[in-house]
Nucleic acid binder design. Sequence first.
DNA 1: AATTGTTATGACCAAGTGGTCATATGAGGT
DNA 2: ACCTCATATGACCACTTGGTCATAACAATT
Lengths: 215, 215
Amino acid sequence: MTQTVLPTFINLPLAKQEKIVAAALAEFADKGYQQASINVMVASSGIAKGSMYQYFKDKKGIFLYIFDFAISLVRRTLVQVKETTQEADFFTRLEKSLLAGVEFIRQHPRIYAIYLKILFDQHVPQRPQLLKAVRQFAAEYFQSLVRQGLERGEIRADLPGPVATFLLDALFDRFLQATCVPFFDVTLGLDQAPPEEIEHRVKELIDLLRQGLAS
Amino acid sequence: MTQTVLPTFINLPLAKQEKIVAAALAEFADKGYQQASINVMVASSGIAKGSMYQYFKDKKGIFLYIFDFAISLVRRTLVQVKETTQEADFFTRLEKSLLAGVEFIRQHPRIYAIYLKILFDQHVPQRPQLLKAVRQFAAEYFQSLVRQGLERGEIRADLPGPVATFLLDALFDRFLQATCVPFFDVTLGLDQAPPEEIEHRVKELIDLLRQGLAS
DNA sequence: AATTGTTATGACCAAGTGGTCATATGAGGT
DNA sequence: ACCTCATATGACCACTTGGTCATAACAATT
């Protein structure tokens, strides 16, 4: 990813860096790229507007830095989940992965909010690359799960791999959206559902995937 | 839905109405609510800015009118699909419904684009109501399909209804997004896929739903 | 032709935008 | 104490925004 942070920012005391990152993250998460206001960012991080432009080349530079920050956090988390569930069977891995996703969003709601804002906004800078980076990462994760599931004979051998990956990706993403976007899910009411209900729904969903719909 | 169209607009010759609606639809679809520019709308529909405010109370009024226009079109289409597939079996109905969705978006891409923009933008006026209107409508559609499938014994009797509905809703919505949002789907490459490939993928997906993943 | 009521118009407004720049501040080295 | 150089600052710029309003154009009725 093209870096547009200036060295001045890197030389800043860490506490100040964090304050600025937090302010920018919150603003982008709330408003999306175009609508996010640099005035708001500088006000809420307590620095002068001019200073912001000593740290970053322009608005795009701030955004890309925040995105890098966010995606590296996602990557680390996902790698960790993958490792700690290595030995479990396919469907247990799915379950644990989904719950880990729910937990990640609970801890970093603004990062997920930024992702959701990028999804359908054509005017985000470098959107194709950013989107591809995220989507590809998720797709590869599911691909590797499916591959292992096939090798171990835990899922049907005649399964069309890409379609299965697509299904998992779709379902997981939607489930996560449902847990954190109000008014989005009218069927299960997952937003504001207590953790034990979410766990129960996860189990039901995975079970449905396992067995299929047919009688 | 609260109407904020002024009578002046209704009295306009139909051709002029359509021109204005088309311009507003295009602008909202491209930019979303906040970022959409009334200046652009009036320029591309060839009327004076002041005139726009003789037709609608304010920006919110324009948007809600466009939304009403859009959702009534969706409703009519969905009702029609439901009726024409009434006699088919559950999985055929799913297949036909999904393909109808793909076709609708092909014919009305801007309407779907507006829906996608509303999804994750907290600052759209009356978002809760608008979102609920759409989501509820979709959920009821799938609920009725599932109910009929159960009655006819085409799907497992022990199926947890809400979860099945959720799964269908998730999968269909994501499939539609994948067909029309570039860079979104890296697994199947559904954007720009020829119709026959899309049909094939639809069949595969429905099959997967039917049989499940387990070996 | 005169009058009345409705519609069309675009210059104008305050507010907010991303971005700039001359100047002020401060720390380190001599 | 003095100089140097990286950093901090906020007034300022051009531009766009949603929205207004006095005026003009027009249509219908008298």
